[in-house]
Amino acid sequence: MHVIYGGTFDPVHHGHLRLALEVSERFGNVPVNLVPCHVPPHRGKTGATATQRQRLLELAIVGEPRLHIDDRELRREGASYTADTLRQLRNELSAEEPLVMVVGTDAFAGFDRWKEWQQISNLAHIVVVRRPGAALNPEGAPAKLLAERGVKSAEALFGQASGLALELSPPWLDISATGIRERIGEGRSARYLAPDTVLAEILRMGVYGHAL
C-alpha cells in the first residue's frame, strides 16, 4: 500500500504530523508520504517558499521512520494538481498495489471543484479525515461519492488498487498553519504548536513576517 498526504504545510505543525501517524497506524504502520505542493491551486501565495517549506518538513520528521517526503510536486512546474500526482504514481506502482490519498473534511468539501475530480477515485482510494467544525453538504457531490464508494474498515482498501472511500475520525489536534503564521507575524509564541526544530528554523529563515 502506498499512502500520500498532500498539502501546503505552510508551516508543518503537530496537527499534520499526528494525523499522518494516526493514518499510518490504521493501516498497520505503513509509511505515509507527505507531499508538499508547489503552487496551491485553491489558495493564494504561500508564506514560505517551496524550498523553505520542504526544509521545515525535513526537520519535522527526523527520527520518525513512518513519515517520508515526496517532493515530486515541488519539482513539477506550475500549479500542483492531485490528479496529475496520482496519475504519475499510478504509473510507477504495480497495477495491483493500493494507492491511498488522505484529505481532511474541509478540503474534501470542495472536492468537486478539483481538476479532474471524477478521475481521482479511479486512480486511488480516498481517505477522508473528519476535522472539527467541518462538515459535508449531504446533497453535494463529495458526500454522495463518499456514500457510494464508502467502506467501513481500513482493511477493505487492501483488497483492490483504487476506487474506495473511507472516513476516519482519529483524535484531532485543532491546530492551523494560518494561526501559526498569524502568531509569528504578531510576535507571539507558537511553541508546542509545531516542533521546536521547525520553529527555530522559521526564526533563522526570517519567514512569516516576524522573529519569534
Results as ranks from 00 to 15, higher is better:
53 R>S: 02
58 E>I: 11
36 P>V: 01
87 R>Y: 12
37 C>K: 06
87 R>C: 13
70 D>R: 00
82 T>K: 05
22 E>Y: 01
18 R>A: 08
45 K>A: 15
56 L>Y: 03
24 S>N: 08
72 R>S: 01
84 D>I: 06
29 N>L: 12
75 R>F: 11
40 P>S: 09
87 R>M: 08
68 H>P: 06
34 L>I: 07
21 L>R: 10
39 V>H: 15
72 R>Q: 02
40 P>M: 13
15 G>W: 01
18 R>Y: 11
75 R>A: 09
83 A>L: 14
76 R>W: 10
27 F>Y: 09
77 E>R: 15
45 K>L: 09
65 P>E: 08
30 V>M: 05
46 T>F: 12
59 L>K: 04
68 H>S: 11
26 R>H: 09
60 A>E: 10
63 G>T: 05
54 Q>W: 09
80 S>T: 10
60 A>Q: 11
72 R>P: 02
20 A>K: 04
77 E>D: 15
88 Q>W: 07
80 S>M: 11
46 T>K: 15
14 H>M: 06
26 R>L: 02
29 N>A: 14
78 G>R: 03
61 I>A: 09
19 L>Q: 00
57 L>E: 01
68 H>N: 14
70 D>I: 00
47 G>L: 00
24 S>W: 10
72 R>V: 02
26 R>I: 04
19 L>N: 03
42 H>A: 06
83 A>D: 10
87 R>F: 05
27 F>R: 08
38 H>W: 04
65 P>G: 05
61 I>T: 10
14 H>C: 01
57 L>I: 03
43 R>Y: 10
47 G>P: 04
88 Q>S: 11
80 S>Q: 05
79 A>H: 12
79 A>D: 11
14 H>D: 05
53 R>T: 02
81 Y>C: 09
51 T>G: 08
51 T>P: 02
34 L>M: 09
90 R>D: 02
73 E>V: 01
30 V>A: 07
79 A>F: 13
57 L>K: 00
38 H>V: 03
84 D>V: 03
60 A>K: 12
35 V>C: 00
50 A>I: 04
49 T>S: 15
30 V>F: 10
59 L>S: 03
20 A>L: 06
65 P>D: 04
72 R>T: 01
74 L>A: 05
71 D>G: 01
50 A>N: 02
71 D>M: 03
44 G>S: 15
79 A>C: 11
34 L>H: 03
23 V>N: 03
79 A>P: 13
52 Q>Y: 04
39 V>W: 11
90 R>K: 05
24 S>H: 09
74 L>M: 12
34 L>D: 02
43 R>L: 09
79 A>W: 12
51 T>V: 11
53 R>C: 02
24 S>E: 10
